[in-house]
């Protein structure tokens, strides 16, 4: 009987300080094979977590293993890992192909093989037409895809992607998501960070929520959503008759509170699904016009606030 595989990433009480600032605070998490989304608002600690996992940073406290090995200063592990950092202002004098080839050479690939792989990787991300374009002449979206190409080119077993979809147009975003899915189907484990929940939802159902350097929740997206749905949701209704609208809503069981802000009606509901379902009929029946409808709680920050402050 074969021994069970180790988790792809295992973090135990992981902490990292930058001087007086805590980047990551006592994080314990396990990431298993497949695609996992690392989700959190800006400054939550996603990049710090990825930098520690990629072996770029040494943790200030706790421990982390990737594919069963300690990542910091571990070239043997780096051969099995592809990393796409968030920044993209580097090597701007290099052509796209030279950039990918240079990094493959660093990984030990022989020159002809490095050239072949660089071309293949660029073609895979849809950048074969731009392989002779210098990085400084590339758009943000092009650079993102070229960065992904360099991470994929060495056939890694695990991919760490820091905000890989930022700056991509919808078509490129769709293509990149499909590309990552294809790679995952071939058995690569992918940890992808994002501050946009629906981006991650389009890639995976398994997420790791991080906020203020701490893990707020882990699990399947549905579980997280259920958790969120158990909390009241704020909805902002804009129109010429907010007080009349409030009088119609005040008796609803799911409405926990009503308030006014800048001429708009703010509703706090414990059952947003039912509220959204009933609202159009109510408005039509009473002839109340509505000029705007939004939910401040759709922002990811609000989700984290719910989960953290509960």
């Amino acid at each position: 009987m074969s021994s069970p595989r180790p988790p792809v990433i295992r973090a135990e009480r992981l902490s990292r300080w930058y001087g007086d600032v805590i980047g990551l605070n006592d994080v314990t998490a396990v990431v298993s094979e497949g695609i996992t989304g690392l989700v959190g608002p800006n400054g939550a600690g996603k990049s710090t977590f990825l930098r520690i996992v990629s072996g770029e940073l040494h943790p200030s406290g706790g421990s982390v293993t990737v594919l069963g090995e300690v990542p910091f200063a571990n070239p043997r592990l780096h051969r099995r890992m592809g990393y796409c950092p968030e920044g993209d202002r580097f090597f701007d004098d290099l052509r796209a192909e030279d950039f990918v080839r240079h990094l493959l050479r660093l990984s030990g690939w022989p020159r002809p093989e490095a050239r072949r792989r660089a071309r293949e990787a660029l073609a895979e991300v849809g950048m074969d037409h731009a392989r002779d374009t210098r990085l400084r002449a590339c758009s943000k979206g092009m650079r993102q895809r070229i960065k992904i190409a360099q991470a994929l080119a060495a056939d890694p077993e695990i991919l760490l992607l820091d905000e890989p979809l930022t700056g991509l147009d919808p078509v490129a975003r769709h293509e990149t998501i499909e590309l990552l899915r294809r790679r995952a189907e071939r058995g690569i484990s992918i940890l992808v960070s994002s501050h946009v929940l629906h981006e991650v939802e389009s890639l995976t159902t398994r997420i790791l929520l991080i906020n203020r350097g701490r893990i707020a929740a882990t699990g399947e997206m549905e579980e997280i959503r259920d958790l969120i749905d158990r909390h009241p949701r704020r909805i902002r209704l804009e129109g010429p008759e907010p007080r009349r609208l409030a009088s119609l809503l005040v008796d609803r069981e799911d409405v926990r509170s009503l308030g006014f802000s800048d001429g708009a009606l703010l509703v706090e509901t414990t059952d947003p699904e039912a509220f959204y379902g009933d609202l159009p009929g109510l408005l039509v029946r009473h002839g109340i016009p509505l000029t705007g409808l939004s939910s401040p709680d759709d922002r990811l920050q609000a989700v984290f606030d719910y989960l953290v402050n509960g």
Partner: peptide, 15 residues
């Protein structure tokens, strides 16, 4: 400044 160190240290090379 450009963050190229991040890329370098994600490759199988030592400091």
């Amino acid at each position: 400044r450009t963050g190229a160190l991040q890329i370098y240290f994600s490759k199988p090379i030592t400091h």
